[in-house]
Write a protein that binds this DNA or RNA. Structure first.
Lengths: 253, 253
DNA sequence: TCCTCCTTTTATGTATACATAACGCATACA
DNA sequence: TGTATGCGTTATGTATACATAAAAGGAGGA
């Protein structure tokens, strides 16, 4: 399939960003197999951008952690072990814990907490319906991502916010990475309820300036995601809902 | 034998790396002032590389955290507040704490601990002489960096190692960032001795699989660096020994 | 004198051409 | 038959040309 004939160049978005998004999709969907060198020429054809922006995108994706530089030149898709993924989640949790502690220790005004509480209430509303619909799960993903983003912001520490964003860039390490995978599990509802309890506690801890408690609960919150990862991988049900399944290193495959 | 070790050298002299090193030097030395847009053409002249590798280097330096992308295009040198810097150090300490905990909880063989203990002994040897010479300070910097690198490796977690490396890339956040600045302070020797005690404790904690203790002491260890930063900035003595002083946002300057 | 608009200039983003180094394949020799 | 070497192909790294968008400067009007 040749894309060359009518290559309408969309100039509203830079070619670099376009190439980056396209390549990321290809990586996460498994079009580009792990360990294999990514051909720039091939990437040029599939993304529609020329070599310069493609190259730029490759560098950014390497920094993002999805690609690995090959010593002799070029890049390949990185492979992740189950341990790598759980460590990445725990890492993210540790950083979020630090953010929560900063927020608690340095103090947060009631006005700043307002959006967090709204988020909390919205999730409460979602969890009230039994059983939880697929649409509700989808809404949960959005609200959960929002909650985590707001919480991170509460630290008011640009370096920390930056690092958390970078740690969450890996799709399987992001706060909502495994929520959809849970949707297939019978204990899904319980898991969401426990997660929401964590949300509630961290807000309470920040409000009362209990730094250690805020930090601890965010770490535990991430451990919930690790548990879900294990559960999903063991059950092997709805693995297609797992983000970046193609990146997971397996012994047999 | 088809493997050629010289390939690494080839890449190290690549125009991209050359430009990156040259630009980083310029940024840290203050040749490029914070807030001002970095002219690509000017960078081409000063680095000797052409625009493509310069552009590559700029992207990498942005990911590294030294540059900031300008919405309308191009990059500028980022400015850091004192709070930004202390947060970056504490961030690094938190990650190192996680690494130490991983090492302690997951267990480390005596053979793996060996190089750490050698490092410890070498630093002990250095600190025995009173007063500590400038050369000793310099040796300390090397050994300290080595100790922190070895400790990070002990976690045996590639994602965590990667993040710690990224967090330490900012010169003022690196483990040895403020050691030289201490050399001008009268309490320098005490500070080094306390730091070494932290090193000793973390090894002991890892050996005894005391995860919480290992984590706590590494956090405290980073706080020592934060204290030194404050001390150095307040005393304003030998500020020229501070890395990236040009990047620190000040109200007066 | 200040503000606004237009023109000019310059810098960035992109495309592409070129050179060099790596990889593969074939052939020859052990 | 296996290994090593050499050549050809191909991909990457680099340089540069071109187009567009932003910034700056000047001129005209209020």
């Amino acid at each position: 399939m040749k894309a060359a004939p009518e290559r309408e160049v969309d100039r509203s978005v830079s070619q670099t960003v376009k190439a980056q998004l396209a390549l990321r999709d290809q990586i996460l969907s498994g079009s580009l197999r792990q360990g294999e060198r990514i051909s720039e020429l091939q990437a040029v054809e599939t993304t529609g951008a020329s070599r310069t922006p493609v190259r730029m995108a490759l560098v950014r994706l390497e920094e993002e952690g999805l690609l690995e530089a090959i010593p002799s030149g070029g890049f390949m898709v990185k492979a992740f072990s189950e341990r790598d993924i759980s460590d990445s989640i725990e890492l993210r949790g540790t950083l979020e814990g630090l953010a929560a502690r900063f927020a608690a220790e340095r103090g947060v005004s009631a006005r700043e907490l307002e959006p967090l509480k709204e988020c909390l209430a919205a999730i409460d509303e979602l969890l009230r319906q039994v059983p939880i619909s697929v649409e509700a799960f989808s809404s949960y993903v959005t609200l959960n991502a929002r909650f985590h983003a707001l919480l991170t912001e509460l630290s008011r520490s640009p370096p920390l916010i930056r690092q958390i964003d970078r740690a969450s860039a890996l799709p399987f390490a992001s706060p909502s990475g495994f929520v959809m995978a849970q949707s297939a599990l019978p204990e899904a509802q319980q898991i969401l309820i426990i997660g929401q309890e964590h949300h509630r506690v961290v807000i309470d801890a920040i409000e009362n300036r209990e730094g250690a408690r805020a930090e601890a609960v965010m770490r535990e919150h991430a451990r919930l995601a690790v548990r879900n990862l294990r559960l999903a991988l063991r059950n092997r049900t709805h693995l297609d809902l797992l983000p970046a399944l193609a990146l997971i290193k397996t012994a047999t495959d």
